[in-house]
Design a binder for these strands. Structure first.
Lengths: 146, 146
DNA sequence: CGCGTTGCTTGACAACATGAAATATCGAGG
DNA sequence: CCTCGATATTTCATGTTGTCAAGCAACGCG
């Protein structure tokens, strides 16, 4: 009987699981350094790039809008984020990072570039190969969202 | 000024972030199919391989033992897991999957082999290269825990 | 035996997550 | 203009995950 999944594929899947675990660990640790949770760090990073409606945050986080309300509440309570009106639609609230929020986001992004250190062990050529393989693995819709 | 992180590395970091996001999505979705949360699925998968003390589950999940108590409670309430005594140490409780738990874990693992499909687009040779690169990226302590 | 350590649970609490219901606004059709 | 369905956000209830501190039972060493 042919195994549904061959040994090599399984090995790669396990390695990916290890990468995922490691990524999370480092992400949470980096966020914690600034007294943020992972979810808060994600939202702050988004808003540091560009203000956006609550609804859009929920879409990017793939969660319910009612959840975003709480996360932004907590960021706002700490002065890292502000809610403002959308001039074009009074239903919408635009969340935006405050100057303090931008500053925190900056310091955060320095810590949370996971794999900068791990990747250092790879030559530029190898990083290129890795990029191509990951891109093909993720398929066509893998425009990097930075 | 030399950028702290070059464009290629940043690209790879973004791709890894995308892989992590995708992995999570699919993992949660697979777990939800069996009315399990991600954490419950992880614990069940561990116990399907081998019974183990609560303490060890906490170590593998990198969380507090008191947290594991709740997760195992919920799995036990659904008859997927059982707590038994450790013959060698009466402080220890060995958690083990029940037959129903094993069955659920089996069906689960079929859904949650992330990247089996994505990896299909890669040749065996390419998967080998990917494995080597990921291994080197993760460093020496990357023994696959399956 | 006595005592520090270990394994697990309990309780209080915060964050995250979902779903349903309430409110306000928008936009299209009559 | 007015109604009515759709959309954006919030609030509330509820459940799961996570932490930490405290408690209890059992271990094992001196």
């Amino acid at each position: 009987m042919v195994p549904r999944t061959d040994a090599l594929t399984r090995e790669v899947v396990d390695l990916i699981a290890a990468v995922v675990a490691r990524y999370h660990e480092e992400y949470e640790a980096a966020a914690a350094k600034h007294a943020l949770t992972g979810a808060q760090a994600k939202v702050l990073a988004l808003l540091a790039r560009e203000p956006m409606p609550m609804r859009r945050i929920a879409q990017l986080l793939k969660c319910e809008p009612s959840n975003v309300t709480g996360i932004v509440d907590r960021l706002e309570a700490r002065g890292l984020v502000e809610r403002g009106p959308d001039p074009d639609d009074r239903r919408v609230k635009l969340a935006a990072a405050t100057p303090a929020g931008l500053e925190t986001a900056d310091r955060l992004s320095e810590s949370l570039d996971f794999a900068r250190e791990p990747l250092a062990g790879l030559s530029a050529e190898e990083r290129g190969v890795l990029r191509d393989l990951l891109q093909r693995m993720l398929g066509p819709g893998a425009a990097a969202p930075r």
